[in-house]
Amino acid sequence: MNFRFVYEFGRIYGFNTIRRVASYIISSLLIPLSLLFILDIVSKGQLLPFAIVGGLTSIVVSNALLTMTDAANLRLQWKIQDLLAATKLGPTSYMFGLMLNNLFFALPGIALYIIIGLAYHLFTPLLFAAMVVILILLYIAASSIAFFASFFPEHIRAVWGYTQIISLILGLFPPIFYPYTLLPKDLLYVFLILPSTSASILIQNIFGLTPFFQPALYIFPIEVIICFILAAKFVSWRRK
């Protein structure tokens, strides 16, 4: 792994872009604030804790999925991947660079949610640390899925369709903004194949919002490893 490249790729392509185009900060804050607002109004404040932890999860997933459009754009439109293919850099360093880049875009939203969570006394240091670990692992898993999926479309416009589908599957259906207990048991087990489901359940569990669900604890790390291996080993870095 070329750690210096990962850092510089994230800094140059992510941080510097945000620095130059301030509207990214506003747009990154608008979506979480809107979700928080809607959920708070609809549930009359009842689901606010879900809105806060769900909002954090949602930001992590949606920004991780941006890796797909970025990677596809760099491969299909700008041909930057072709440029890098003839270097010692492998897909793993490249993927982590893209992940760090998109993390910069997520940071304003994450910071906002953390401030709101602290204001509502939702976080203790231990719970917060546990949540951060889960979210980092979820970010790696979702980015890996996005990176892997980015290698299938042959045309840049096809990428948008794929991204919508994956966003829906990973970001909307799983119990991110609602208690997992509302899901029928059969459906819950089906949804468990998605890392965002097991991560959301674990986060709800550690904040005491829902009863402890042990399978999620075992399944989640396995999902992260499988997603990562899929992206690091099975992408065709060299074109066919």
Partner: peptide, 26 residues
């Protein structure tokens, strides 16, 4: 290898492009 169709990354400066590439080459 410099591919024929490679394009500059919009908002990134020439200096940053070079940095990015040379770091990729270690």
């Amino acid at each position: 290898s410099i591919p024929q169709e490679v394009e500059a990354m919009g908002i990134i400066t020439p200096y940053e492009h070079m940095q990015f590439y040379l770091l990729a080459r270690e």
